[in-house]
Simulated scan of single mutants.
Amino acid sequence: MNARSETPPLRLTQQLPTGLLEVELHEGAHELDELLGFAARANAKRGFLFVSKVLGKHWPVRPGRMLAIHERLASTVPGAPGPVLFIAMAETAVGLGQGVFEAWLRAHPGQEALFLQTTRYRVGTGPIIEFEEAHSHAPRQFLHMPAGAHEQALLKSARTIVLVDDEASTGNTFLNLTEACRRLNPQLERVHLAVLANFMGAAATAALSERFTLPATMGALIAGAYRFTPADCPVDAAPAQRYEEYAERGASTAFGRLGLARALRTPESLARALAADVKAGEKVLVLGTGEFMHPSTLLGAALEKLGLHVVVQSTTRSPILTWGAVTHAVGLPDNYGEGIPNFVYNVAPGQYAHVLVCHETPPNAALLGFARTLDARLFHYHTEDDVEEVPVR
């Protein structure tokens, strides 16, 4: 009987403007170019970025491709006791987490689950869990107590927690959040991490259960480890968060911050009306704003089903250098009113015939600035079924 041969790991070395990144991939190397690129961040805490090509944040992606990725990650969640609590990590993975939650619901009809997103904005006056994502450009995050009685009951009775992010590197943020949730709900029995890329390394991944003191599993499309050696170069030290506890930022309570136990509905009539304005062969960009991502993906998917050439992505507050997987960077004003620089990456002027900006915040000067800079139309989501086009001119 022949011994089973193992595929050797793929080793990559990337010299970034901010330092040397060394990557070793054990799983998913055959999909690397389709799933991941590399970029340099203007961040003293972490000078590199794994740019996901299927996240819809820094890189344009077809909506159908994103939804397929959601289904793949949802399928990694092991059969586990319910209710199941899904938590998406802000800012980057809010849309990913909501998509994974909805894909899991479709695959498990009749089973109870709750979706929550972490957020960098305080909404309402209810209780919150506060924690930090230490390496982030904007580290302070919150998890709000659900508003509805049913959603609160699901949170407090959940037995499995699924934490969704684009990447796992140390696992510290996942651990901090899980411990906070266990203080609220001691009945939690197991943890699953669903990420696009797991760079914790094999030993740390194998030790998850011991570290969490709960049965813990990992689902990832790419797995490996990395080492980064910073270069001696200046970085942008501009703040990415100006927190005022009770400041009104226009962040909505309708899309996941206060809990959802169902999938969002797609504005089909809006998609049909928008499609009527698009000529054959014209390219369409549907752009989410900050933490407001999944509704724009659903709109993009509806347009794609109507035969349009559509990609989706989102603005971000993460400062990234124009290098590697980031070929264009456009600075935008902050529509949440903190005065934090926002950006959209890999969007060149004139690249799209139609740019549709989806936002949760009320119309303001920043959004009008978005529209002028990107030659875009603005769509204010009051709820998933009530979407208002904001006059730009």
Rank of each mutant, 00 (worst) to 15 (best):
N2I: 14
E27Y: 05
G28K: 00
F38T: 14
R46W: 07
F50Q: 13
T76V: 11
L85A: 07
M89L: 15
T92G: 06
Q117Y: 10
G126R: 01
F131S: 11
H135D: 14
F142I: 14
F142K: 05
A153L: 12
L154M: 04
V162N: 00
S169V: 04
T170G: 09
T178E: 13
L184F: 05
L188Q: 11
A197M: 04
N198Q: 08
A207M: 05
A207I: 04
M218T: 03
A225K: 02
D232I: 10
V235N: 10
A240Y: 04
E245K: 07
F255T: 03
L260V: 10
R262V: 12
A263D: 02
R265D: 13
V286H: 07
L287A: 07
E291T: 10
H294G: 05
K305S: 15
L308H: 03
A325F: 04
A325C: 11
P333W: 00
D334W: 02
D334Y: 02
N346L: 02
P349A: 03
Q351K: 13
C358G: 13
H359E: 06
A366T: 00
L367N: 02
R372P: 14
L378I: 02
L378P: 13
F379E: 11
D385M: 11
D386P: 06
E388W: 15
R393D: 15
